[in-house]
Design a protein around this nucleic acid. Structure first.
Lengths: 187, 187
DNA sequence: ACCTGAACACCGTTCAAGT
DNA sequence: ACCTGAACACCGTTCAAGT
């Protein structure tokens, strides 16, 4: 995650960076450990709270927020193959929720992967957009706003609409994915 | 992208790294330039080739492969807000394809974002899985394979199935997204 | 046998000093 | 005014030398 380096961890432990290699093979492994630790915060709603669909959404939102709370961690989630106990726990829980929705287990396996990948990517995008990226965002808005109506009619017609929606966009995307996996059997 | 540093570019140009700051404000801007250049390779099928849906899939597959062909570039696509001409071109093309599928323009705007985000994330995941990540993958397989049947019955039942499917999984995910956006109106 | 300081091979970015 | 070598403040990883 951003600003999490072996050297800083080592400094916080009052030792040299080399000493960390006793506990960890490399930086990726440190990342995986931190990620799984944070995943312990993810809350999965109890059985009686609403239907499976809203519980699934709540669990994914919790995952998303746990990542977003630490700058850079979403990127880690995208580049790590996690195998820690909390990831196992979360995966099992999501599989269960989808099965409650009537989905076959093998399709649910692919669905969980897709949902987690999307949620991580969304958190990473949000993460990148905060901070000093106002420059890049403004340039994108200008580039898309000043497009010729003849060559790019759709973009021109959309205008500022292309950058609309923060929370509502995420909610919509989650519904897209859930509706999609429900309507798309495995080949 | 992996191994693309300001210093290496500068070295290739027989100058010092500092000199690049005449053309580029920082590393992110260099990344954005490279990304848009590569996006020029993306091919979008002509009108007469199949229905809109298969043309949409072909365009996204082309995007995915352009990213995947350069290690690290998919990560760049995820962390950059692109505003280059080739990205504008691709966006317009995807909007057009979705509109041919009967979608309202404002929903298509969100859909294009979602499709590109997912395709980039998928390419990044594939990218990370190649190379020296065999260690992490094997550890994940072991962790999920040796799970207790009582505490994690779903994962236990799935076994190796959790890691199945390469190409077919990507095709399925694309169908999930397309079916999803078709079935989910904007709020 | 275990630990770690110092070294190695890299980074992005800045800025004073040159032309 | 423009360019850039050298410096600064970082990295991950290795390994010889110490205990």
């Amino acid at each position: 995650m951003a600003g999490l380096s072996l050297r800083k961890v080592a400094a916080a432990l009052d030792t040299g960076a080399a000493s960390l290699y006793v506990y960890v093979a490399n930086l990726d492994e440190l990342h995986a450990l931190v990620l799984d630790r944070v995943l312990g915060e993810v809350v999965t709603p109890p059985q009686q709270d609403g239907d499976w669909r809203s519980r699934l959404k709540a669990a994914l939102r919790s995952y998303s927020e746990a990542l977003y709370a630490r700058p850079g961690l979403a990127q880690v989630a995208l580049s790590t193959i996690p195998s820690g106990p909390n990831m196992v726990e979360l995966t099992e829980c999501l599989l269960d929720l989808l099965q409650q929705g009537g989905m076959e287990l093998d399709r649910a396996a692919w669905a969980v992967d897709l949902l987690l990948l999307h949620t991580s990517a969304f958190a990473a995008e949000r993460d990148n957009r905060r901070g000093d990226d106002k420059v890049a965002l403004r340039r994108a808005q200008e580039a898309l706003g000043s497009v010729s109506p003849e060559k790019h009619p759709h973009i021109h017609a959309l205008g500022a609409e292309l950058f609309s929606g923060e929370q509502s966009r995420y909610d919509w995307a989650l519904d897209v994915l859930i509706n999609g996996v429900l309507n798309t059997p495995r080949p």
